[in-house]
């Protein structure tokens, strides 16, 4: 399993991560980011891609 952290003080809800890892990240009806904090290892590559594309560099994978 992998654990995901988003620093919500940095996150500006651009949603770039949503397309890289749609099973983990989503924008709700208020345009705010929501995410699943624990995911299967099979999501690692997608979440790493989401980490890369986050404009605010707010996403981390906690090993």
């Amino acid at each position: 399993m992998i654990k995901i952290e988003v620093d919500m003080t940095k996150c500006q809800h651009y949603g770039q991560c949503v397309f890289e890892a749609p099973n983990i990240f989503r924008l709700n009806n208020d345009d705010k980011l929501e995410y699943t904090a624990v995911a299967d290892d099979s999501e690692r590559a997608n979440v790493e891609a989401a980490v890369d594309v986050c404009p605010m560099q707010a996403i981390r994978i906690v090993e």
Partner: peptide, 11 residues
Amino acid sequence: IGMRAAVQSYR
């Protein structure tokens, strides 16, 4: 401007 979820849906 704003409406990020709507913009996202265009991808």
